[in-house]
Amino acid sequence: MFSRKGIRGNEQPAGWLFVAPAVLILGLFMLLPILMALWVSLTRWNGQGSPFTGDVPFAGLDNYTRLFTDEGLARQDFMTSIRNNAYYVFFVVPIQTVLALGLALIVNNRLLKGKGFFRTAFYFPSVTSSVAISVVFLFMFANGGAINAILAVFGIEGPQWFSDPRGLLHIVLSKFGVSSPSPLVDHGVFGLSWWDWLSGPSVAMCAIISLVVWTTSGTFMVMFLAALQNVPVQLEEAGRIDGANRWQLLRHVILPQLRPTTFLVVTLGLIGTWQVFDQIYVMSQGNPAKTTLTPAFLSYRTAFRDFDYGSGAAISFVLFLIIVLLTLLQRRITRERDS
């Protein structure tokens, strides 16, 4: 009690005054809106008037159950978006993590000159505007674009990227003569047939996957680089004296040291990839045939294009839950492995 007075004086008014602007803005534009959206997700508000009057029909948990249990377009679209995003995560997270680690290991090599240049080159894409970079990739993946021109050099006829809804796994399976096997087509779960679930990312989604890997690898490379610089040199030398070759050094000395960073990169990757929105909005708007529809874009579309704000908000909260759960799960797995 005495410490508050005396030399430090009374800091209470100053303390509150200092945090007031930030608290006001974050409270008003983050906390309050979340509570408002929670309410709207329980209604059938269509955007007319205020959602907080008695005139707005109350829907209870309908907006949520429609996504999971009721047969219909809402569930089909939602499950399609979950499938698309799951494949997107499944490809983006491992590829960007491995690429970032690989680039960091090479850039970190003491014998190489020009480190600064390469670090800059790899990192630059991640500071540019997602919208501007999407425009560039849209051009590169255009039908007569740069990517198909490169593929043509190797004698490959590139696909029409953004109008090709074929799933990657379906394409591979068709090479083995498997197409639409009836046991998988006739049965399913959550409104999609097993065959639809097993489509793999569509060709259009692959273009978006490559864009995202390209933009985010640089950020994660910088994180790996920072971690690599903290690996004690003695550790590496000790390993070398013990006769470890380069691969063994990497596998048994360096990688274990990088575990916390790898965990962070994978977690940040999982959290980020479930939020993909800008690129979808600019490049594909969920097309072709809804194969690039993601929960984030679906929630936007449902609210602002179909004026079904309740369902849109419900999708947002399910997405919120997915991201939180994934973070917790990932933490638990790492903790168990460590102990």
């Binding site: 959206a37 984030a296 947002s316 997405l319």
Partner: peptide
């Protein structure tokens, strides 16, 4: 806690509060 809120789930909430 706020730092853990994914920005993309705030799209509809932000619109609601600005509208209100």
């Amino acid at each position: 806690a706020l730092m853990a809120v994914p920005p993309v789930v705030l799209l509809i909430p932000k619109f609601l509060v600005l509208n209100q």
